[in-house]
Design a binder for these strands. Structure first.
Lengths: 149, 149
DNA sequence: CTGCGTGCAAAAACTTTGCAACAAT
DNA sequence: ATTGTTGCAAAGTTTTTGCACGCAG
């Protein structure tokens, strides 16, 4: 599912207004690039793609912009254990979690409402108001189980 | 709950035998230090504590040893979003997950068997064999909800 | 105009690694 | 003896930052 530009725009403009941020050519480019791609993107990857359209954007601006997207809630920041932060679009697709193969690094996404409901329950029990969450299951995918056996 | 030295010892010695690793003064010091502490520890923190007993251990050895602990399954590696890997003892206490306050950084641990069971179920459905997992719920703790309201 | 934003390069923060000396088996 | 281990410092990665210039509002 692609992310919905309408909702995005709304969240973003409210966020930028709130913080007195300005709309710039670079920010638009980076944000559009990020949402046009899909998956779990490193800053490096977003940068590479954005540069295809404008050779002059600096990686620092990409770092700064991705951080804004994260703070605005439009992107989740993830850490899959390699040393890099990866960003993932947070609107326009249903929430999902990850199954990660520790051998071949395959990542499978899944969602499970029942788990989500239980999470809320647990949080409430501790007086928490959950804003977001991440869940990652690490193990061996079908193929790697076979090869390792 | 403190970690149980017996189980630890066993897992560790099997792991070291398997890989032809040697027992050294530094490794013992670092491992003991790690398990004597509690919580989510950065390499820096373990190092600081270990140095109290032996000024000469180098931070490189701590990095190397923590990686071994992680590979042996005795320590989980976590990433809470600050730029550091944090390690947490993986035996002697039941598995648990985390509620993290995004405002004051309070971390509450919890466990929920029902969720664990559902995770296994989902994994199996995708042909995965789960070895470990982590789940983190981000939000506002009781206190911060009040202050932010 | 005014102040935020950008690019660049330098720096910071964290982690890994090459190597010679050293220690465990 | 042999082979793995350590400390150190250098190098690698990823991310942040200072600053002068530029651009949006």
């Amino acid at each position: 599912m692609k992310s919905s530009p309408a909702k995005r725009e709304e969240v973003l403009s409210r966020f930028m207004a709130e913080r007195g941020l300005k709309t710039t050519r670079q920010r638009n480019l980076i944000i559009d690039t990020f949402f046009s791609l899909d998956g779990h993107l490193s800053v490096e990857e977003v940068w590479a793609k954005a540069r295809e359209l404008d050779r002059r954007v600096s990686v620092a601006t990409v770092y700064r912009t991705m951080k804004l997207l994260h703070e605005s809630g439009l992107a989740h920041a993830r850490n899959f254990g390699d040393g890099q932060t990866r960003y993932e679009a947070a609107v326009g697709k249903d929430h999902h979690d990850h199954l990660i193969c520790t051998r071949c690094s395959t990542i499978i996404e899944f969602e499970n409402d029942q788990i989500e409901r239980l999470q809320d329950l647990v949080a409430r029990k501790h007086g928490f108001k959950v804003v977001s969450h991440k869940m990652e299951l690490y193990g061996l995918c079908r193929g790697c189980q076979r090869e390792t056996a």
